[in-house]
């Protein structure tokens, strides 16, 4: 129970033990604990980041979907417009064509009429001349009466 040189040995043991505990136990363990803390923090931040990214991706997907829908709508309405346009166009063209054909037929008819009229006129003139010859019994000088005959023909 009395204090003696044992205390010196115990002091040396204690100091050595502190040194050893620091080297063998606390040193590697504290490093390990720090590492683990860092790993957990990293994992948590990575999870947070992943969640954030997922949110972003979802948002982007929604936007893309919305865009696609809008585009489809556009394409649809454009196609409809185009089809009505084409139908309208075709109608107009058909009408024009009909008009054209009608006009051509009209012109043909007109031409035919005027030709017939011309022929008729000539025939009438010849008939009149031959009738007059017969009436007068004498040859009418065609040349002398040409002018008069022409005027006559025009009158018909």
């Amino acid at each position: 129970m009395n204090i003696n040189a044992t205390v010196i040995i115990q002091i040396i043991s204690f100091v050595l033990l502190i040194w050893f505990v620091n080297k063998v136990l606390w040193g590697p363990m504290s490093k390990l604990l720090e590492d683990r803390q860092k790993r957990i923090a990293d994992g948590l931040s990575a999870a947070e980041k992943g969640k954030h990214e997922l949110e972003l991706a979802e948002k982007r997907a929604k936007e893309v979907l919305k865009d696609a829908k809008l585009q489809a709508q556009n394409v649809l309405s454009q196609a409809e417009k185009r089809s009505t346009e084409i139908v309208e166009d075709a109608k107009v063209k058909a009408a024009e064509e009909a008009e054209r054909i009608k006009a051509a037929a009209q012109a043909d008819i007109e031409q035919e009429i005027s030709r017939a009229r011309e022929q008729l006129r000539k025939e009438v003139a010849a008939l009149v001349v031959s009738g007059a010859e017969k009436i007068l019994h004498k040859e009418v000088d065609a040349k002398a009466h040409n002018e008069m005959l022409d005027a006559l023909v025009k009158q018909i």
Binding site: I3, T6, V7, I9, Q10, I11, F14
Partner: peptide, 9 residues
């Protein structure tokens, strides 16, 4: 002796 050694350190 032991406790005193610790205390002295």
């Amino acid at each position: 002796n032991t406790t005193l050694a610790l205390a002295l350190v």
